[in-house]
């Protein structure tokens, strides 16, 4: 199956690969997996005191589309508030990367990863206050 140029670009030069310390109070970690293909995705966000996402990291084991979806997402969420980041839809990712129908589930994975990272951060902040 042919990948789009955008997918290839993210696959060959993934942005923001790596991790933050998940125990930091301003770091949210989302871990999700795709049972159908066995892909695993970890997405982390770091927010400042204003609740704006300053930085993001990801680590994905999976196909090119899954890597590209998470790489793109880490670029998109930077500078966004949590609420804005939550609005990102998998269809936006799929459209930007021109994912074929059989690979749309990779973008679903990325959307669920950012939501799970936001939930993790909010749960942490709830506990603190």
């Amino acid at each position: 199956m042919a990948y789009s140029e955008k997918v290839l670009d993210h696959y060959e030069n993934p942005r923001n690969v790596g991790s933050f310390d998940k125990d930091e109070p301003n770091v949210g970690t989302g871990m999700v997996g795709a049972p159908a293909c066995g892909d695993v995705m970890k997405l982390q966000i770091k927010v400042n005191d204003q609740g704006v996402i300053e930085d993001a990291r990801f680590k994905t084991y999976g196909c090119g589309s899954a890597i590209a979806s998470s790489s793109l997402l880490t670029e998109w969420v930077k500078g966004k508030t949590l609420e804005e980041a939550r609005q990102i839809k998998n269809t936006d990712i799929a459209e930007e990367l021109e994912l074929p129908p059989v690979k749309v589930h990779c973008s679903v994975l990325a959307e669920d990863a950012i939501k799970s990272a936001i939930d993790d951060l909010l749960a942490k902040q709830d506990k603190k206050s």
């Binding site: 871990m31 999700v32 997996g33 795709a34 049972p35 159908a36 066995g38 695993v40 970890k42 680590k59 084991y61 589930h105 679903v108 994975l109 669920d112 990863a113 799970s116």
Partner: peptide, 15 residues
């Protein structure tokens, strides 16, 4: 496709 949330410890082990 819609079953992406799983036990984080399990996913960590996968990773």
């Amino acid at each position: 496709e819609y079953e992406t949330r799983m036990d984080p410890a399990f996913l960590m082990q996968q990773m």
